[in-house]
Simulated scan of single mutants.
Amino acid sequence: MSVLPNHLKYAESHEWVYINESGEAVVGITDFAQESLGDLMAAHLPEVGTDISQGEEIMSLESVKAASDIFAPLSGEIVEVNTELEDEPELVNDEPYDGGWLFKIAPHDASELDNLLSDQDYQAMIDQ
């Protein structure tokens, strides 16, 4: 069973998101997703300043098994990327909910969070 913090919202495409104290949406992938991918070899991060729409492909992660597209859980502008992943993509494997975050978005409409899953709903989805 994967670890699922209950303060996060989850996308069906296995990204998590929360709004931090600065009003930015912090995005990563779930423990379930990183386990499925296996050992990460590279993170192809988005460009700061990129405007994205909810559900849009924004970046990819490469593992020993495959490359996986990462989708934006919210619409907005990329305001920061986790540059540590350029040298240490395995942070996503080691700390998927902490040091392995991927990017931050200045959301256009925080109500888009309502389109995402709770921890219980996400767990039910991956259990199927």
Rank of each mutant, 00 (worst) to 15 (best):
M1D: 15
M1H: 14
L4I: 04
L4H: 03
P5Y: 10
P5V: 06
N6W: 13
H7E: 07
H7D: 06
L8M: 09
L8G: 01
L8S: 00
Y10P: 01
A11P: 00
E12H: 10
E12A: 14
S13M: 05
H14A: 02
H14P: 05
H14S: 07
E15T: 05
W16K: 02
W16D: 00
V17I: 05
V17G: 01
Y18M: 05
I19T: 00
I19H: 02
I19K: 00
N20A: 04
N20Q: 06
E21I: 08
S22K: 13
S22Q: 14
S22A: 15
S22H: 13
S22V: 10
G23H: 10
E24P: 06
A25T: 08
V26C: 12
V26E: 11
V27T: 02
G28A: 15
G28I: 14
G28T: 14
G28H: 12
G28V: 15
I29Q: 01
I29P: 01
D31T: 09
F32R: 09
F32L: 12
A33H: 04
A33M: 08
E35N: 14
E35L: 13
S36V: 15
S36K: 12
L37S: 08
G38I: 06
G38L: 07
D39Q: 11
L40M: 09
M41E: 09
A42W: 13
A42D: 15
A43C: 15
A43K: 08
H44Q: 13
L45W: 04
L45G: 04
L45E: 09
P46F: 01
E47M: 14
E47F: 09
V48Q: 07
V48G: 02
V48N: 04
T50S: 07
T50C: 07
D51S: 06
S53E: 11
Q54K: 08
Q54G: 08
Q54F: 12
E57S: 14
E57T: 13
I58N: 04
S60M: 15
L61K: 00
E62K: 07
E62V: 09
E62A: 05
E62Y: 08
S63L: 10
S63G: 14
K65F: 03
K65R: 04
K65I: 05
K65G: 04
A66S: 13
A67T: 08
A67S: 07
S68P: 04
S68Y: 10
D69T: 12
I70H: 08
F71G: 00
F71M: 03
F71N: 01
F71E: 01
F71I: 03
A72M: 07
A72G: 08
P73S: 05
P73E: 06
P73M: 06
P73C: 05
S75A: 14
E77Y: 09
E77M: 12
I78T: 10
I78V: 15
I78E: 03
V79G: 00
V79R: 02
E80I: 02
E80L: 03
V81S: 00
V81Q: 00
V81E: 01
V81N: 00
N82E: 08
N82G: 05
T83K: 04
